[in-house]
């Protein structure tokens, strides 16, 4: 899905509005290799305060799944940058996995991450993803057992999303040692590209992880925080931040 080393940006769709999201995506597009778009959910259990807030704001502004597919469709008219939709499984389940994947494909999305759908609950889901050409992406953690890692690696995912630490999303002062240990282990066991996320907010974090062998680094909360602060006017600050993060890839 991307050429390593890569930068993956995450923002929540509809925060603060769907129009703003489309603009923000265009800003990020110049610097990010993959754009992750969060579909808001009322109960984001894997997320820290920053992304929780983004979810609530997006729901507050009446963001619907249809309106998010609309954003993707509009973005696709001017860019080929891969888009990965990230959400909680209930959103997909409720729409119907089949319909969700069909609509995602028709809109022009490339991949999907369901935060609370682990690999072994995802049998039919994977088949449906395949039939619509949507790449499923599974998350792994520092404590994921070796045999599970291999199964996930063999599942036909677009890349492996390594959660960098034991915790929820949110900015951290530094990358924890456990992230590097997990990175080395996962890298040695998996053939797919490896993207590291959770807690990464500065260019030096990006640099360290890429230096340690990460194929991509995912940044979410740091961008979402800017949107929280500047709302509709976040374009410029977002650009500054993504530019700074991109520096870390050099």
């Amino acid at each position: 899905m991307f050429k390593a080393p890569a930068l993956i940006s995450f923002i929540t769709a509809g925060d603060p509005s769907t129009d703003a999201t489309l603009r923000f995506m265009k800003v990020l597009d110049g610097y990010a290799d993959v754009i992750e778009l969060g579909i808001p959910f009322s109960d984001p259990v894997a997320d820290g305060k920053a992304i929780q807030g983004a979810n609530y704001r997006a729901l507050e502004s009446k963001t619907t799944v249809d309106s998010i597919f609309d954003i993707v469709r509009k973005f696709r008219k001017s860019s080929d940058t891969p888009i990965v939709l990230m959400t909680y499984y209930n959103i997909i389940y409720r729409r119907g996995v089949e319909k969700f994947m069909q609509d995602a494909r028709d809109a022009g999305a490339d991949g999907v991450i369901s935060v609370d759908l682990p690999f072994d609950e995802a049998g039919d889901y994977q088949l449906i993803c395949d039939s619509y050409g949507i790449k499923p992406i599974f998350m792994v953690a520092p404590n994921t057992a070796d045999n599970r890692l291999k199964k996930i690696d063999d599942s036909g995912c677009a890349f492996i999303y390594l959660v960098s630490h034991y915790g929820i999303t949110g900015m951290q002062d530094d990358v924890q040692e456990i992230a590097f240990e997990a990175l080395h282990k996962t890298k040695s066991l998996c053939k797919n590209q490896l993207a590291v996320g959770f807690g990464i907010s500065r260019s030096e974090h990006v640099k360290k992880l890429v230096g340690a062998g990460a194929d991509a680094v995912i940044v979410g909360s740091a961008l979402v925080k800017i949107i929280e602060e500047f709302g509709e006017d976040a374009d410029e600050k977002l650009e500054d931040k993504i530019k700074e993060l991109r520096e870390g890839l050099r």
Binding site: V115, D116, P118, A141, T144, V163, Y166
Partner: peptide, 10 residues
Amino acid sequence: GRYVPEVLIP
């Protein structure tokens, strides 16, 4: 079922 983030599987 067990619909949780991967980190909670172990």
